[in-house]
Amino acid sequence: MMELSLIDMVFYLFSAVTVASGMLVISARNPVHSVLWLILAFFSAAGLFVLMGAEFLAMLLVVVYVGAVAVLFLFVVMMLDINFTELRQGMLQHLPLGGLVGFILLGELVALAVAWNFGADVAKNAASPAPIDTATTNTEALGQLLYTDYIFIFQTAGLILLVAMIGAIVLTLRDRPGVRRQNISVQVQRKPGEAYDLVDVDTGKGVSLPGKKG
């Protein structure tokens, strides 16, 4: 019987939780529960990253995926009113087809991996989650890669994302006429004299307000 160290036990705990919550994401009946299980899966994956020494990646996973992306998921899923049991009714009927597609994909991936002609240096330079040189921190190593070694590729990726963002805004922007907008700087600059008029009203005559009809 192998002796389990504390690190090993934590590793098995995190990986068991990740796998179990991943299963529950697709099997939970309530979609909101699915998203919550997904969040747990993200979170324990971040724990696995920490165990591998990739602390920066772990924190980014939590900040970006758990803190922002999954919040938007939850936001949308909570507001939807979809009957998911109805959606699932055809599941058994489509299972063979889906399984076939998945199986073909798996086969192709395996074939690719077996037939891949690796370059001479690839095995040596295999990606590692934490910097090999322990003197540099995670943050430094990643910064060196992203902003010094691969700065142009990184910037190009950023530009592509920017284009996608502008595209999404252009597609959804509608110019609606007749909407009364609040312009805060105009409101703040308004002076008392412009906001009201003092009028002496003669008895029995009434008054017509300047700047208003009628």
Binding site: E55, M59, L60, V62, V63, G67
Partner: peptide
């Protein structure tokens, strides 16, 4: 932690 401030943000 080396990433203390990120931990707080997370």
């Amino acid at each position: 932690l080396n990433v203390g401030i990120l931990y707080i943000l997370a």
